[in-house]
Design a protein around this nucleic acid. Sequence first.
DNA 1: GTTAGTGCAAACCTTTTGCAGCTCT
DNA 2: AGAGCTGCAAAAGGTTTGCACTAAC
Lengths: 174, 174
Amino acid sequence: MAQDTTEGSLKERGVRLTRQRQILLELIDKTGEHLDAERLFQMAKERDPKINRVTVYRTLKMLKSGGLVDELDLMHYGGDQHYYETRLKQEHAHIICLRCGKVEEFFGEPLQRLRKQIESHFGFQILLARTEVGGYCSHCQTLRAREVEELRESLSGGARPDKPPARRPRTRRS
Amino acid sequence: MAQDTTEGSLKERGVRLTRQRQILLELIDKTGEHLDAERLFQMAKERDPKINRVTVYRTLKMLKSGGLVDELDLMHYGGDQHYYETRLKQEHAHIICLRCGKVEEFFGEPLQRLRKQIESHFGFQILLARTEVGGYCSHCQTLRAREVEELRESLSGGARPDKPPARRPRTRRS
DNA sequence: GTTAGTGCAAACCTTTTGCAGCTCT
DNA sequence: AGAGCTGCAAAAGGTTTGCACTAAC
């Protein structure tokens, strides 16, 4: 019987529910984080060591074009990969702290208002929407101010001219 | 004398205004389209055949981290590259037709409202914001309906099971 | 039994990096 | 003069593709 999940939605369309897809769907639906393909692959490998990275990409592509997941890039914090999340949740914006990387979700009504304005203003039929916001979270604002101050001091002291923003180092593959 | 442009802003920071940068800045500031790195490179090459693709990437990176341009991806219509635009304009959302590729810009006040809500709700300091919307423009909605109908007919006729969405073919480089 | 889906290897596109030489200021 | 920038070549990261084999229905 088709459940009220991504899995159910696929069954109805006659998409085959392979073991690999079951694993991936459960990870995407039940994991509370925003996963990128590589991370998803690593997690899936724990349940099926034989699973291939390509299968992850193909599954994500299928889910995306089927409107079952949304693709984000979280302002490219951490690199150029894409992140994925189910569409089971209500529409929301993503708020990314550019210093600590924390991601918040915003569900307020201004989003629906914006959506409706766009639809009526252009006579546009919206299929996907995505709002991403980058900046400093309340916690990092003070820390950031301190960093800037220290930077200024070290400059007059004659030290390094600039500090690259904290980025996740590019991951090398096995 | 520093003009009220991206160029002026760079001079004030002591960034060198090389010939290459002048070309790129003018293209970005004055071109009405959303350019990706490759396109920008091709256009720049017409004015300076010696210019290198790497210089384009480095300039874009510098402008982005300096807050002088915004980076978009227009819902990955046309591929995985990024698009760039000056920040001289007021904040706006991008509306992309997934069928014809046309990009509209939305400047309405719901955007400011959304921004303020997010700032006050999380105590967040916004540095960048980006809203991208994909769907069908008013013109393509009817055409799309017709396509779906034709697809249905051809299916019962026993023809091809699916039609890949119209995508710009991946460009091979010289 | 069919046909969609998988794994593997190799390709692809976009972007970044190291380094020697050039050029703005 | 000298730090900052460029060009070139080469690499990296993320993703896609071709093809023979496997497994879901």
